[in-house]
């Protein structure tokens, strides 16, 4: 695949945090690619490193984080031409190179709309800030742009809402404002970190429809971080399942849902209550708890909770195997297939 098709290419990303003079590895040799104009869903339970992975790419982590990678390549497509950016070479997380990219090229929507807006600024000014910063546009012109975007995102009565403060908005409307901030500079790649976890289901449906719209009609590439398997099934083109900082399964939506291969993904899909379960049917559970990332033993991280665990699973680093084209699974059950990076 060439740079035209791939918008983000991550190879062997490692992130660790220094805590109490101890190094705790949170993200371990993660590799994935995001195809242009598609949605990649990153799923996993809390603490599996899905948010840290994306924050490592965007360089949003604190000073106690250590990020290293073989390659974090962002391919911008401007007027039919590809420009490559190698994010891993940028020394400073807040240097001019990163700041130039955040906003016009890649941007992020955060989980909690209640706390990602500044309560003492009008929402219109908060949305316009990025535009003024990046394009040097005048305030008046920027305001017009913001109004236009508000209309597109379905914020009712934008002319009066633009001068409101965040507390005057409901949760769903705040999340639309946050999406507007991410969208205002017209980025190609939008990373959404659990955009609807704090919202009600009916509002979640509205926001998801909006994101789907942006992807289909404007060709945006979306990375959707979530723990809701239902949302994945509805939104994703490709799925990346993470457990304890590693990608355990990666593949197309059909690969992951119809040919579910990793024991963790299987268990995860079966433990979700779905509507219309038969009477008296009991949910399957995953025994045990997710281990503490600070005291990881060797071998497969899922070994203690896995029904198919063997002696071999407890030693060394488990490689990933490609069981079908583009479908990789980190599990020794599939060791007859070719080993791949990731």
């Amino acid at each position: 695949m060439n740079n035209q098709e791939i918008i983000l290419d991550v190879k062997n990303l490692n992130t660790s945090f220094i805590s109490d003079r101890k190094q705790v590895d949170i993200v371990k040799s993660v590799s994935f690619q995001v195809k242009r104009g598609t949605t990649l869903s990153v799923v996993g339970e809390s603490g599996c490193g899905k948010s840290v992975t994306m924050n490592s790419i965007m360089r949003f982590l604190g000073s106690n984080a250590r990020v290293s990678a073989d390659n974090i390549q962002y391919n911008a497509l401007r007027d039919g031409e590809i420009t490559e950016y190698h994010l891993e070479t940028y020394k400073k997380s807040n240097g001019p190179e990163m700041r130039a990219l955040r906003g016009p090229d890649m941007s992020m929507v955060f989980q909690d709309p209640m706390s990602s807006l500044n309560p003492v600024y009008k929402v219109g000014d908060q949305v316009a800030e990025g535009l003024i910063q990046h394009t040097g546009m005048g305030k008046k012109e920027a305001r017009e742009k913001v109004l236009e975007l508000f209309r597109k995102l379905g914020i009712p009565d934008p002319e009066s809402r633009i001068d409101c403060y965040p507390h005057q908005f409901s949760g769903g409307m705040k999340q639309r404002v946050v999406i507007a901030i991410a969208m205002i500079c017209n980025p190609e790649l939008i990373i959404c970190d659990e955009p609807t976890t704090a919202l009600d289901v009916t509002i979640q449906a509205q926001i998801m429809e909006l994101l789907k719209d942006l992807q289909v009609n404007e060709g945006k590439s979306i990375v959707l971080i979530t723990h809701n398997m239902g949302l994945v099934a509805e939104m994703a083109d490709e799925v990346c399942v993470m457990y304890m900082g590693r990608v355990v399964e990666f593949g197309s939506l059909e690969d992951v849902f119809d040919h579910t291969s990793h024991p963790y993904t299987k268990a995860l899909l079966r433990s979700v209550p779905v509507l219309g379960l038969a009477d008296g049917q009991i949910l399957e559970t995953i025994p045990g708890i997710t281990p503490n990332p600070a005291d990881i033993k060797g071998g497969c991280d899922f070994a203690d909770r896995c029904p198919d665990c063997t002696e071999r699973c407890r030693q060394g680093v488990i490689p990933a195997f490609e069981i079908a084209k583009g479908h990789r699974v980190r599990c020794l059950k599939y060791d007859s297939f070719p080993e791949v990076n990731g």
Partner: peptide, 24 residues
């Protein structure tokens, strides 16, 4: 509307989504 807003973890159900306008 509430039932139709729930995302289903199954890629083969084609459910007609009924999206509620507005908020509570």
């Amino acid at each position: 509307a509430l039932l139709s807003a729930i995302p289903v973890p199954d890629i083969h159900t084609t459910k007609k989504r009924q999206i509620l306008e507005g908020e509570v």
